[in-house]
Design a protein around this nucleic acid. Structure first.
Length: 641
DNA sequence: GCGAGCGGCGCG
DNA sequence: AAAGCGCGCCGCTCGC
């Protein structure tokens, strides 16, 4: 059992030592500062040493004083430990306070509760707590009219009522967490600091806030994990991602409302009055109605449209674009044109512009960990679905440039590294991976290589994609075997994990019931067929989970490294605020955009490439897989390709 | 009149 | 060319 820390008097009442005294009293700067809210409007800051034991004095202050206190502490670059980055960081950024590092307890809790690497830990085996149901804090809407959902009720009020439990013992072992987290994201790689041990220390008596108890549980889970360095890197990356997400939202994507309006006017006609169709849509509507011989049909209604098409002798099963394209009929061309332009109006039209672009910026709300695989989600404005059609409205400020980078063939490269497939690694070395697959002789064209690899990673069996699979399996047996094994695990109800240990959810109770029923003696053929369909479907999910999830981990490490490098560039350049230095302004799974002073654009491009190589090393060590990025330095987003 | 669910389509 | 993974958001539909 690990040490039970000695009790230390931790002043926590009003009048406790102000934050500025902490450094004077402590022999060494705190490794962590835990941020909590003992009661509404008050904030408690508790410095901890590298072992998680209290050091110096805690300080309680009023919420408006937080930014100044954080800025003061930040000189020592502690890791800020808080329940939810989205809850604390936006207000700090609003006061121009940037922090280097944090532990996002909410996000890390989710990972550690479900990871196969920490399945035996106290954290994972304890009954569910409020940490399991905590939703990210609702971020403030960019305008009062913005349709962001209201912030969900905080569950932390409950947490503060149950803080009398004993503090769980933290591990005596020094986890690689310290080392890898610093090496990764602080630029201290190779400095070899942080190995000095301090055993014991006080964990405080009784009244520790839930954040500290949760933090101790998480540290224990990491230290006792099957492969601590992987899960440690994952939670560090997840947390730095949370910082980056808040900074991305804070900075926003530079957006020219003028250019956007010009684009809309070009495609749709002048902005109509509320409730009216733009002229170009009206024109197309009349043509469609006339050509279908139906003076009232509404093409926005799939039900009505389908009926009208059938009356006109067009037999289709849906009104999807790809199906309509197979039809020969004069009404089809204007109909597809209508759909295209109508989509622009409803998804990214004037209403979108009014709602989401404020003072020349689109402030997307990114949700780290929002996708089950570990990808980010986004809400509000469809940030992760920005159509290529409107990217010409993303324009750098005067004197600045956009540096756009995307990871080339990221997912198949991730698979090659995961599977240790030397042939596939070689195919991607120094060139486009799909070209390399063609050069290997496995398939005849780049399009086939891409189709085949996507099919292998998504579980496609039909058509061209399925036909490529046997060839790929011969040329790259390790890679194909890897995803096949992941699929098989899912089909039989098992869980799979990414490289760093994010673990897939278990199939639902209904899924398991269906399987038991189908396996029993009296099962009908129909039931068995359904069960097999469901099994394959879940197998496709787990198959893709390992690749998409590990690619997301790569992206988190990339972003963490980029963020550190850009800040360093900015400091050397004398920038005072986040938005003065080169900063991330957009993120899209395997692509980033940096908004930078023009004179630093080349340096930024260099750092983006270096960061990609660093991400590969962090996750895969010396595996001979390259992660090249294509970089474009442009004035507007549409120029990057 | 409200809201869950669906069809459709944008992104990776 | 139109299957296979992960999302968010729109307008419409349909049941309450």
């Amino acid at each position: 059992m690990a040490d039970v820390p000695a009790a230390t008097g931790v002043p926590r009442e009003d009048g406790a030592a102000p934050a500025t005294d902490v450094q004077a009293q402590a022999s060494a700067p705190p490794a962590y500062v835990v941020v909590s809210e003992p009661r509404p409007g008050r904030v408690l800051l508790e410095p901890l040493d590298a072992d998680g034991a209290p050091v110096g004095s805690a300080a309680e202050l009023a919420r408006p004083d937080l930014a100044a206190a954080v800025a003061e502490h930040e000189r020592d670059r502690p890791r800020w430990v808080w329940n939810d980055t989205q809850r604390w960081y936006p207000t700090l950024l609003a006061e121009n306070v940037r922090v280097d590092r944090c532990v996002d307890l909410r996000l890390c809790h989710t990972i550690l509760r479900t990871s196969a690497l920490t399945a035996h830990s106290t954290l994972a085996t304890s009954p569910a707590s409020a940490w399991d149901t905590l939703r990210p804090a609702g971020a403030p809407a960019p305008t009062s009219a913005a349709p962001l959902k209201a912030a969900p009720l905080s569950l932390f009020d409950d947490l503060f009522l149950t803080d009398d439990d004993p503090v769980p013992p933290s591990s005596r072992h020094k986890s690689p967490y310290e080392r890898s987290e610093r090496a990764v994201f602080d630029g201290s790689m190779g400095e070899g600091d942080g190995d000095g041990k301090r055993e014991g220390g006080g964990a405080g008596a009784g009244a520790a806030p839930d954040e500290r108890r949760e933090f101790a549980l998480q540290r224990d889970a990491i230290a006792t994990a099957l492969d601590p360095s992987r899960i440690a890197l994952l939670v560090a990356a997840e947390s730095v991602g949370a910082l980056a997400a808040a900074e991305l939202r804070h900075a926003g994507l530079p957006w020219s409302a003028t250019r956007h309006d010009a684009l809309l006017t070009r495609v749709l006609g002048p902005r109509p009055r509320d409730g009216e169709r733009p002229a170009e849509l009206e024109r197309l509507l009349q043509r469609i109605r006339s050509l279908l011989n139906d003076p009232t049909v509404n093409p926005d209604s799939p039900v009505e449209l389908l009926k009208a098409l059938r009356r006109a002798g067009i037999t289709v099963d849906s009104t999807r674009e790809w199906e309509l394209k197979t039809v020969q009929h004069p009404a089809i061309e204007p109909l597809l044109d209508y759909k295209k332009r109508s989509r622009l109006l409803t998804a990214n039209g004037w209403n979108w512009l009014d709602t989401w672009v404020v003072d020349g910026r689109f402030h997307a709300n990114y949700l780290p960990g929002g996708v089950v695989t570990g990808r980010w989600a986004a809400e509000g404005g469809g940030a992760l679905q920005l159509p290529k059609q409107v990217r010409s409205a993303v324009v750098a400020d005067e004197g600045r440039m956009l540096v756009v980078a995307d990871a080339a063939q990221l997912e198949p490269r991730i698979l090659a590294a995961l599977a240790g497939d030397r042939a596939m690694a070689a195919a991607g070395r120094g060139r486009d991976l799909y070209d390399g697959i063609v050069a290997s002789g496995a398939v005849d064209t780049r399009a086939h290589a891409k189709l085949g690899m996507l099919g292998a990673m998504y579980g496609g069996t039909a058509g061209e994609s399925g036909r490529m699979l046997p060839r790929l399996a011969r040329a790259f047996p390790a890679a194909v075997a890897y995803v096949e094994a992941a699929a098989r695990t899912g089909e039989t109800g098992g869980v799979v994990s990414t490289r760093l240990g994010r673990t897939s959810p278990h199939p639902s109770a209904e899924w398991r019931d269906l399987h038991e029923l189908a396996a029993s003696d009296g099962a009908t053929d129909a039931l068995r067929t359904r069960a097999r369909t469901e099994a394959r479907s879940w197998g496709r999910f787990t198959r893709n989970f390992v690749v998409q999830g590990t690619a997301a981990e790569w992206a988190l490490c990339w972003i963490g490294s980029i963020r550190r490098r850009l800040h360093s560039l900015g400091r050397r350049d004398g920038a005072a605020a986040l938005t003065d230095e080169p900063h991330l302004s957009f993120f899209l799974h395997d692509e980033v955009m940096v908004h930078t002073p023009a004179h630093l654009a080349e340096a930024v491009a260099h750092e983006l490439r270096e960061a990609a190589a660093e991400a590969g090393r962090l996750i895969f060590g010396d595996a001979p897989v390259e992660f090249p990025v294509t970089v474009a330095i442009v004035d507007s987003y549409d120029q990057a390709k």
